[in-house]
């Protein structure tokens, strides 16, 4: 059985290593600030948490901000964590890409870019994946249509 780590405990460890990176944390999730996402993710992968497997990457639009959600799993230790980051502003939302850490993010980040319009800095091949070039708008945003 995969153990879901308590978010507050992980958040403590992350903020000890990377000060000022935690926006919020609760039972299940850790929310890091967008500019500190990459170091926080790197810490979670390389530290004793050993999150070697990115199970899922997705995003949600809460109108005030976009949330990018990372479901991390450690196959070695069989535990999991929900990592989130928030991006404010609807014009050109951007966050660091985690492809250098987990290759599995490659196509999922492209999908988020296509359907939600969040660009990932440092992605090797960021372009539309499901829709065609020239499609107006990003359909998964709440204000689409």
């Amino acid at each position: 059985m995969t153990v879901a780590l308590v978010g507050t405990g992980v958040a403590e460890a992350v903020s000890k290593s990377i000060p000022g990176s935690i926006l919020a944390s609760d039972e299940k999730t850790v929310v890091v600030s967008a500019d500190k996402l990459y170091p926080a993710a790197e810490f979670l992968k390389t530290s004793e948490f050993a999150f070697d497997y990115l199970a899922n990457l997705t995003s949600a639009d809460y109108l005030d901000y976009f949330e990018v959600v990372y479901h991390l799993v450690s196959l070695k230790k069989n535990h999991s964590l929900v990592l989130k980051t928030r991006i404010y502003g609807r014009e050109a939302p951007a966050v660091a890409s985690v492809v250098p850490l987990w290759r599995g993010a490659e196509l999922q980040e492209r999908e988020v870019f296509d359907l939600m319009g969040i660009s990932f800095e440092g992605h090797p091949n960021l372009k539309r994946i499901l829709l065609w070039d020239g499609f107006p708008g990003h359909p998964l945003r709440r204000d689409y249509l």
Binding site: L75, R103, G104
Partner: peptide
Amino acid sequence: ELAINASA
């Protein structure tokens, strides 16, 4: 290693 890293 690649399989795990690429979320297979």
